[in-house]
Amino acid sequence: MNANGTVTIDTVKDTVYRSCLLLDDENWDGFLELCHESLDYSITAFSPEINRDMIYFSHDYNGLKTLLEQLPKHNTDHSPLKRHVSVYTVDLDEKNGAASSVSSFVVYQNMLDGINSHLDSGENRLFLIGKYYDKFKLDSGRARLMERQARLDTRRLDKGSHFII
């Protein structure tokens, strides 16, 4: 792997890690800045119960932007979601200015107002586990997200969430 390639692998990892910090902070605009306008975002899972691949959520760049902007109009569990992520693999396709990565995630709910805050606030609950399957566009030294599939192992989702994963 050449020096340039090494830098690019780090650039891809950096985008994944930054995306998680921004999502942890509910900085939706910041997250969208890491994305390409052709973004395809989805949350998927396989259900052994019904023996089927499922899509739980999906939006393009504009759809996601609109949805996130409308969040304040909705009643929402405001318990912040905190992600713990490890980038497992990065595959570069420099010829086409593209890359892909697989990362595993664990998402905790840092309880705030979801149920009975007197008892629950401050507690952490395991909310989700799964993997990010990400695809990137590489240009001008940046790796921007073109596709993010958050593939969940969790199918018991309790109250669910208005936030993206």
Binding site: I43, F57, N75, T76, G114, G160
Partner: peptide, 19 residues
Amino acid sequence: NSIWGPFGRNLHEDLIGVA
């Protein structure tokens, strides 16, 4: 999904309500 999925707009609100 947009309304009734676990990340949809309404189901989350309904479940917060009954919780």
